[in-house]
Design a protein around this nucleic acid. Structure first.
Lengths: 233, 233
DNA sequence: GTTGTTATTATGTATAGACATAATAATGAA
DNA sequence: TTCATTATTATGTCTATACATAATAACAAC
């Protein structure tokens, strides 16, 4: 046996998953109730509940009170996309992490950023490169809301990245993430060492602490970058 | 009260989350054991367990037997990326869905695809466009492994997209997803109505049924496309 | 000091039983 | 027929208790 057989609620989860995958319970099918399954598997209802709950969290099943549990119509998937700290990300890829601050200044953000930061405010603008084995990996362009994080103004980000400083200093409750493909600007192209107009994988994040915008950051990845993830498995 | 106060285990989750966000329990901090928390909150240990478990699933907490529960060093985030069926995606954006088959033929895949499909095999090659309000939205380039899905050869994908047919017909257990920014090829540019070399948001997926490769698909999105998601909130 | 063995302990999981809740189905009144 | 009311029912959740398990800590032997 290469992988140990799961036991307990995970065994139930595996069996239910098998029936779904084997189309014994096709998409849209209403599966037996918890009591029936508990009887079949010879366990308590709570154990079945745990298993089905987990599958519902994963988007495989849809559960509604009274209506019962059904196999999701489009059991497509819910990819869990881990967004690690850049340093960690680079080191996990087996490279030496490097960091270089390009610019740090207090200024009035342009209208687009101002809107992301929630109206008129002064902001700290930080631009930096994250290096993998001395090659530019990510270009970070960040605005920090000084109304929400006033003490960021006294901080210098020449050795410690704003990324990590914020993470360990400023509370947040919500992050909006947006992924896109964009054409490299003149300036960005130079920093990332590629041709202007070249495709750049871009991640934009807006971070909030409840209703207060904390920071708005654009990460531009070096060419060849791919974000991998998995559904199921 | 705009949002109803959570009760039960969700209330506990909320309170723990508050302490984490408020830095009462900073990253790396070991929080009290389940028995202590249960005593503090006046509930059963199982209820605390449910709450902490959920937070551990979300990547906020790290739990290890005997060692206890600690706040994650990098409470970064785990974005849940829903990958819907294209039709559904387009309709949810408020557009009229359209579909046009470009090509369907049985052929030997090129080396790259052959590798993704697990060695030498014949494959069904399907190319199609998915339209939003008659404008090209996604270019689908798909290879279906005929060794795993032989009856795909008799299927015609001129009205029903391979996407939906596969989803409702062929079982799968695992999907590898890769997101990247790529330059538009001559041909792809023409179909998506953009300049060659323009940045194209690209999603590559390989689908498996256990160890059998089912299909390998490349989705090229029209310019301006953004994939949104949220952490926390 | 190092290694191997044995508590100790916090989480992991299972149990039966109970009540809550939401949504459907059945029933009755207008 | 149509609408409002009231069962009914499957899931949601909590409780208390018990045992399993993994990892640390304490201790013993070498």
């Amino acid at each position: 046996m290469t992988t140990p057989q799961p036991t307990g609620w995970q065994a139930i989860q595996a069996e239910v998953l098998r029936r779904v995958h084997a189309r014994e319970w096709p998409p849209g099918h209403i599966i037996p109730g918890e009591v029936d399954l508990a009887a079949e598997f010879g366990c308590a209802r709570a154990t079945v509940n745990r298993a089905l709950q987990a599958l519902a969290d994963a988007g495989i099943l849809e559960r509604r009170r009274k209506a019962g549990t059904r196999v999701a119509m489009y059991p497509v998937g819910r990819a869990v996309l881990d967004i690690p700290v850049l340093r960690q990300d680079i080191e996990e890829r087996g490279h030496v992490y490097g960091y270089r601050l390009l610019e740090q200044s207090i200024m009035t953000p342009d209208p687009v950023c101002a809107q992301k930061l929630g109206g008129n405010t002064t902001a700290l603008h930080v631009r930096a490169v994250h290096l993998a084995d001395d090659a530019p990996f990510v270009l970070e362009d960040r605005w920090i809301n000084l109304k929400t994080v006033p003490h960021a103004a006294e901080q210098s980000f020449d050795t410690l990245s704003a990324n990590e400083w914020l993470l360990h200093t400023v509370p947040y409750t919500k992050i909006d993430v947006s992924l896109s493909a964009q054409a490299a600007s003149e300036e960005g192209a130079a920093t990332l060492r590629l041709a202007p107009g070249a495709p750049v994988f871009t991640v934009e994040r807006t971070t909030w602490d409840h209703d207060d915008p904390v920071t708005y950051v654009t990460l531009r990845y070096a060419p060849g970058f791919e974000l991998h993830t998995q559904i199921g498995g």
